[in-house]
């Protein structure tokens, strides 16, 4: 579903992403791990067509993102880091806006999609509140709801559980897990337990390069008996 080959991005003299390649199929949940500044967000931004790669290709459903960005964006649900949203809009207005841009123009179809994601992400109690008045956990869920509204075949989530309390984290993970059967999901995270909890595969990147691409079990087998964060430290040091 998602295929990335030799992606490169340079900012000034710093090479943020240095030839990253990987593949994600439907039904997979790929955990994207790495220290801060390793190039996780940059890779995701190139994949979603927000920034242009300097070299390499990224395709979603066989379409190259630099060739037909709009067609790729149609297939993607994207939750950017820190879940930006228009603060002066209410949750409902915001989701209706996203639904309309996503092509749900007729009022009943729009209604139905908005109600569906409001229910999925448990936002019904705050639907008429403006987004600026929401707590971080709710904002994060609004971002999540926005990414799911068109039921996309591919989901890209930049730190989806960031800022949530343990219960909410658990809820979001269950949600991702339940949807994953027919979707290709990439999620970036700092939290190593998340990998164990939901990911079917892990990619660890450091300094813009892939240093590991395997199942969580294989990652553990690298240093039997060691904790995940120890393995992470050896790989990214």
């Amino acid at each position: 579903m998602i295929e990335v080959t030799g992606l490169v991005k340079t900012y000034g003299t710093k090479r943020a992403v240095d030839g990253i390649s990987f593949k994600v199929n439907r039904g997979e949940i790929l955990g994207f791990l790495g220290p801060n500044g390793a190039g996780k967000s940059t890779t995701m931004k190139m994949l979603t067509g927000f920034i242009r790669p300097d070299a390499g290709t990224a395709t979603v459903g066989g379409i190259d993102v630099t060739v037909d960005p709009v067609a790729v964006k149609r297939q993607l649900g994207y939750l950017p880091e820190s879940a930006p949203a228009y603060p002066e809009m209410t949750v409902e207005e915001f989701l209706c806006f996203i639904a309309e841009v996503r092509g749900f123009c007729n009022a009943t179809a729009q209604r139905e999609r908005v109600e569906h994601v409001l229910g999925l992400t448990h936002l019904n109690s705050v639907r008429n509140q403006t987004i600026e008045t929401l707590s971080k956990g709710y904002k994060q869920r609004v971002g999540f709801a926005q990414a799911l509204i068109h039921n996309p075949p591919a989901l890209i989530l930049d730190e989806p559980t960031d800022g949530l309390d343990p219960n909410q984290k658990n809820e979001v993970r269950t949600l991702i897990k339940n949807m994953a059967a027919e979707k290709a999901v990439i999620l970036s995270t700092h939290i190593l337990e998340e990998v164990d909890a939901i990911c079917t595969r892990v990619i660890i990147i450091a300094r813009g390069r892939v240093v590991a691409d395997e199942t969580p079990a294989a990652l553990r087998a690298r240093q039997p008996g060691a904790r995940l964060d120890e393995i992470f430290r050896t790989l990214t040091a």
């Binding site: 709009v70 964006k73 994207y78 820190s82 949203a85």
Partner: peptide
């Protein structure tokens, strides 16, 4: 400033 530009330009619009 608000970062919503990232949201806007990852929606299917030119």
């Amino acid at each position: 400033r608000a970062g919503t530009i990232e949201l806007l330009f990852t929606l299917p619009i030119t």
